[in-house]
Simulated scan of single mutants.
Amino acid sequence: MSHGAPAGTRVHGGPDAAGVPLFDFSTNSHACGPCPAALAAVQLADAGRYPDAGYETLRRQLAAFHGVDVQRVLLAGSASEFIFRITALAVQRGATAVWLPPHSYGDYAQAAQAWKLPVVAQPALAQLRWACDPSSPLGAAQQGLAELAGAAAFSLLDRAYEPLRLSGALALSDEALQQFWQLWTPNKALGLTGVRAAYVIAPPGSDDAVAQLESLAPSWPVGAHGVAMLQAWTTPEVQAWLVASLATLREWKARQIALCEAMGWTCLPSAANFFCARPLLPHGMNLPQLLAELRGQGIKLRDTTSFGLPGQVRLGVLAPAAQGALHNAWQHILRKAT
């Protein structure tokens, strides 16, 4: 979404009015998933009971996993839910402006609009500052990351794609990282995007803000299936699966970029399991028409116009069979256009 999208307007990848795409490049979910152990945990979750309202066991597990005090761990219904909640907190604490990366997840702006919080061009002018690394939609490093933290602001680092980083590393010292509120959403890395659950690691010394965020949350923000997924996330078995699977994603990504370039598409650099590309449009066809033609053949790409990148698409890395389907559909479109 662009920063100026009308309130209530949301653009996302994934299933749409035409149903579930046969080959869905429009989301960034792990193409090797679902993770078998995490899926089994979700399937075995006891949906007949409420979770512990305080999530005491889960919070201890997450705290141990990250090596932090349990008081720093907050649960959230999803990344989007927490984005809206911490925006509300920032406003309650006197925030008058928000800073967003030039191209970023639309819910940052959506939450700001809901709270009538203007977007400013310079981080120093904002009391709420967002960052994402690897970023979306580009999958690149966030520029100027270390400069975003500050005592006078809520500095948020969305780490949704950190587990799916295929190259490079976060350009922050541990000391600088501790100044950020870190938002984690493991469902993408586990290939379980239908399970909504997230958590946050608060900066040290944020007890008052943590307490206020807890008071702003509904009861049981995470259901039994989300609890099961987050508990599985912390286990050595699931982490070993993730590490091993990244090698496969690297191979598939290199193959997919080569295929797109052979089709005449211009691919942008990316460190994650997705990348942006500018398609070479057939004569007389615009991008929406191309995407519609592909969707009619069961292939969905993510138009990045809503991210402020018109004329480009974002492609999640998929398996070779899906890549072959994209190539065949492209050839079919070219034949029709000539």
Results as ranks from 00 to 15, higher is better:
Pro163Met: 09
Phe154Leu: 14
Ala38Glu: 06
Arg60Lys: 10
Gln143Asp: 13
Leu190Pro: 00
Gln178Phe: 02
Glu237Arg: 04
Gly298Tyr: 05
His225Met: 13
Asn187Thr: 06
Gly144Met: 07
Ala228Thr: 07
Thr305Met: 05
Ser270Pro: 05
Arg72Phe: 04
Leu44Glu: 15
Phe84Leu: 10
Pro51Cys: 11
Ala41Gln: 02
His225Asp: 10
Val42Ser: 01
Trp115Leu: 14
Ala240Glu: 14
Cys276His: 04
Leu309Phe: 08
Asn273Cys: 14
Leu164Pro: 01
Phe274Ser: 12
Ala141Leu: 07
Cys132Val: 13
Ala112His: 03
Cys35Ser: 14
Ala18Trp: 10
Gln113Asn: 07
Gly4Trp: 10
Pro102Cys: 08
Ala209Val: 11
Pro218Asn: 10
Ser78Lys: 05
Phe23Asp: 13
Asp208Met: 09
Gly94Pro: 07
Cys32Glu: 12
Trp99Gly: 00
Asp158Gln: 05
Leu117Ser: 00
Gly194Phe: 08
Phe65Lys: 02
Ala160Ile: 11
Leu44Gly: 10
Ser136Phe: 15
Ala232Gly: 06
Thr27Asn: 03
Val200Ile: 15
Ala244His: 12
Ala53Asn: 04
Gln122Lys: 11
Asp158Ala: 06
Glu175Gly: 01
Ala202Ser: 12
Ala271Ser: 11
Gln71Pro: 03
Pro102Gly: 09
Ala109His: 09
Leu290Ala: 12
Trp233Ser: 00
Met285Leu: 15
Val200Glu: 00
Ala146Arg: 04
Ala64Trp: 02
Ala53Thr: 07
Ala90Asp: 05
Ala198Glu: 02
Lys336Trp: 08
Trp130Gln: 03
Val200Lys: 01
Gln43Lys: 09
Ala329His: 06
Thr9His: 08
Pro310Phe: 03
Asp303Ala: 08
Gly296Asn: 09
Ala224Gly: 05
Ala124Gly: 10
Ala197Tyr: 02
Ser29Gly: 14
Ala40Cys: 07
Glu251Arg: 09
Phe180Val: 04
Pro118Thr: 13
Leu192Met: 15
Gly298Leu: 10
His66Leu: 12
Leu39Ser: 13
Gly311Phe: 12
Gln239Met: 09
Ser306Gly: 13
Ala240Ser: 12
Ala40Asp: 15
Ala5Asp: 15
Leu44Pro: 01
Leu213Tyr: 02
Pro163Ala: 13
Arg255Gly: 12
Val70Asn: 03
Phe25Ala: 07
Leu192Asp: 00
Phe274Pro: 02
Val313Ala: 04
Glu214Trp: 08
Pro123Glu: 13
Ser206Val: 10
Ala322Cys: 13
Leu216Glu: 11
Leu128Asn: 03
Ala97Glu: 10
Ile257Tyr: 04
Asn328Ile: 08
Leu309Thr: 09
Ser78Met: 06
Ala88Leu: 06
Val91Gly: 05
Ser206Trp: 14
Asn187Ile: 00
Pro269Lys: 04
Val222Arg: 01
Ala321Asn: 04
His3Gly: 00
Asp52Thr: 11
Phe154Asn: 04
Trp184Lys: 00
Val119Gly: 03
Ile333Trp: 08
Asn286Cys: 14
Gln61Glu: 15
Gln142Val: 08
Pro137His: 11
Pro204Val: 07
Ala228Asp: 10
Trp184Tyr: 14
Glu81Val: 13
Gly226Val: 01
Ala38His: 08
Asp52Gln: 07
Arg302Asn: 13
